[in-house]
């Protein structure tokens, strides 16, 4: 995994224009950021007094920065003098980079504090941004002409789904959901694999094959084909069939939730996982 710049979130929060490309090892980037922070966020100096800090080319800039940090009561100072030209000394570079990390991080926190105190009331009233709601298709006005009814009837028969007796909007919505669910690329791929499996295992066809859903016509079929889904009877076959459907939906829901958990765990494992074995430690005998 690539290393994430520790400042990205803070820079993004402060709406720094170049937040994505900020590089702590680049002196120009740092200087530009320091000047930007003072000019737009911290505003400790008056406009005139900012002159020396703006002169990034000057050799005295480091001293200037240390004075500035002192005035801000920062616990960090730039100790090593500007030696970024000395690229051979890698260790020194590293130490300097670490120094800059502390300073910039502190300055960013300070800037966020200033930003917050400037817009305190406004920020406190903010609510989490709502996700865009899914596009709702306008189905209310789909009408109920004879033509429309017949067309829907055909479509429903083709898709093998029941049709709402009165409200065409409900039927349309159902068709939409069904198509989305069954005809997305993933489902089609799964189905192709399923068919392939089926062909391969044609010879071992048994009574409890999974083809029932194709043939399921009424609630009685549901009870007949999925007896394992219900271990009791309410006495009303319709209710029993509904129970089976609810159970099936519940299983799908839990499966999805379980998949999400596993995905999260897998993602976190990228950070925490560090399995080790040490054959030397294994002891044989006494």
């Amino acid at each position: 995994m690539s290393r994430i710049s520790p400042f990205r979130r803070k820079l993004a929060a402060l709406k720094y224009a170049d937040w994505k490309n900020f590089d702590i090892s680049n002196r120009q980037h740092i200087q530009a950021l320091v000047v930007w922070l003072e000019q737009t966020k911290i505003r400790h100096y008056s406009v005139e007094a900012r002159g020396p800090l703006k002169k990034t080319e000057s050799a005295k800039w480091d001293e200037c920065l240390n004075d500035y940090l002192e005035e801000l009561d920062s616990p960090y100072r730039l100790k090593s003098t500007s030696s970024s030209t000395n690229k051979e000394d890698k260790e020194q570079m590293k130490a300097q980079e670490l120094e800059w990390t502390y300073i910039i991080d502190w300055m960013l926190s300070e800037a966020i504090l200033c930003e917050y105190s400037d817009h305190k009331d406004e920020l406190n009233e903010r609510k989490p941004i709502r996700r865009k709601e899914k596009t709702v298709y306008e189905l209310e006005n789909c009408g109920s002409t004879k033509e429309m009814n017949n067309a829907l009837k055909d479509l429903c028969a083709f898709l093998r789904i029941p049709m709402h007796p009165t409200d065409n909007a409900v039927t349309c919505q159902t068709i939409l959901t069904f198509i989305k669910d069954k005809f997305n690329p993933m489902s089609i791929k799964n189905y192709e694999e399923y068919i392939k499996d089926k062909v391969n295992t044609q010879h071992s066809k048994t009574s409890n094959d999974d083809d029932h859903w194709v043939r399921t016509q009424s609630y009685k079929d549901i009870i007949r084909f999925y007896p394992e889904m219900i271990n009791f009877s309410t006495g009303d076959e319709m209710v029993d069939a509904a129970t089976i459907i609810l159970r099936a939906l519940y299983i799908v829901d839990v499966r999805n939730a379980q998949n999400q958990f596993s995905e999260i765990l897998n993602f976190l494992q990228k950070f925490t996982s560090d399995p080790k074995t040490n054959a030397e430690k294994g002891k044989v005998g006494w």
Binding site: P275, K276, T277, N278, A279, K281, G282, K283, V284, G285, W286
Partner: peptide
Amino acid sequence: IPVGVGSKGIIP
């Protein structure tokens, strides 16, 4: 395999 059990694991 040497005859005798590993009584200690190889996971540190």
